[in-house]
Simulated scan of single mutants.
Amino acid sequence: MNFASLDLNLLKVLDALLREGSTVRAGQRVGLSQPAVSSALGRLRHALGDPLFLREGNRLVPTDFATAIAPELAETLERMERFLSGPGFDPTTADTVFRLSGTDYFGVLLMPRLAERVSREAPGVQTILIDLVTEAYIDTIDKYGVDIALMPKVGDLPAGFHWRPFAWASFVFAARKDHPRLARAGVNPGETVPLDLFCDLSHVVMSPEGKTETLSDDVLARMGRARRTVMSMPYFAGIYLALEQSDLVALLPTKLAGHVAERHGLALYRPPIEVPPVLLAMVWKATATSNPAHRWLREVVFDELVWMNEGEPPLPRGVER
């Protein structure tokens, strides 16, 4: 037999014939007509040098050779099917290490929820959050083997990446409770801060890259105005701790501010400008999209993040093939 020239599809026909003992039923099993099965059987007889089946009435009786190879043929085809289906993923027994990247925003709002969910559903799984510099997220993904980057979706992604949005992040104005200048101006929590006061107060901004201007400054510039920024930090936690202990003020993501305000003695107000919300998304390498373990991770992370979009605009579609 010349194995190199053997059509491996014929082995599926042989397995069906061994199981069914009929060219008609074998054809139904593999999706071929009866004449096509008969033709395939002829090719198999020639290739293997054995009649394979003898007809007795309406039945096909396998030869000794066919009977001998039947168990191993069935096992081999099943093993090939499992192999070609790719590895499965059972979270209850997995000991996989997953790496996420993002700012401490996700350390506060995602990781505690993820800890409870993963410890319950996948006790052997390890989850690591890596700090992310937004402008170098591709380098971060490659350098640290990041499975999912959690980041603002700004502009088009390069080829080879997929993404799925999970929330719009709007912003509120935050300051410590009983902030003297806000109190003197008679501005109560929940009210809009006057624009002149907003611009004159000392602001702290969040920027992993150390920038002192953000989208809010672009909005002010279009109005012919500017605010006074005196500090920039790469972590939100540093910002709300600074607000708690000083007269600095900041624009914070609404969900984060609502989560930490009471604990850190902050009061929340409406900003006097329309701060454009930021679309937050999961980003990953397209090559991982069909991976069962990665698919499980994406669904779990999305489930624990999508609550952040409550009260925000509807989400657009991502690119997840």
Rank of each mutant, 00 (worst) to 15 (best):
S5V: 00
N9F: 04
L18M: 09
S22D: 13
T23E: 15
A26K: 14
G27M: 13
Q28P: 01
G31A: 13
L32R: 10
Q34S: 15
P35Y: 10
S39Q: 15
A40F: 07
L41V: 00
G42V: 03
A47K: 08
N58T: 09
P62K: 04
T67G: 13
I69E: 13
I69V: 15
A70S: 14
E72R: 09
M80Y: 07
E81C: 01
R82F: 02
F83K: 12
L84K: 02
G86L: 00
G88A: 02
T93W: 05
T93K: 10
A94K: 07
A94W: 03
A94Y: 05
T96L: 15
R99D: 02
S101W: 04
S101V: 04
D104C: 03
A115R: 09
R117K: 01
R120N: 03
R120E: 11
E121I: 00
T127W: 05
I128E: 14
T134G: 13
A136E: 13
T140R: 08
G145D: 10
G145H: 12
I148S: 09
A149F: 05
A149S: 11
G155L: 09
D156E: 15
L157A: 11
H162I: 07
P165L: 08
F166V: 04
F171C: 02
H179S: 06
R181V: 06
R184W: 07
V187F: 10
V187N: 13
P189H: 02
P189S: 06
V193H: 07
L195N: 07
D200L: 15
H203Q: 07
V204L: 10
S207D: 11
P208I: 01
K211N: 11
T212E: 14
T212P: 04
E213P: 02
E213L: 13
T214V: 08
T214C: 08
S216D: 11
D217C: 00
D218S: 13
L220C: 05
L220T: 00
A221V: 04
R225G: 09
T229M: 09
M233K: 07
P234F: 14
F236L: 15
I239L: 12
E244R: 14
E244P: 06
Q245K: 12
S246H: 07
D247W: 08
V249A: 14
L251V: 04
L252M: 11
G258I: 01
V260S: 10
A267F: 05
A267Q: 06
L268F: 04
P271Y: 03
P271A: 06
P272I: 01
I273N: 13
P276I: 00
P276Q: 09
P277R: 02
L280K: 04
W284N: 10
A286E: 15
R295V: 05
E299L: 07
W307R: 05
G311P: 01
P313C: 07
R321D: 15
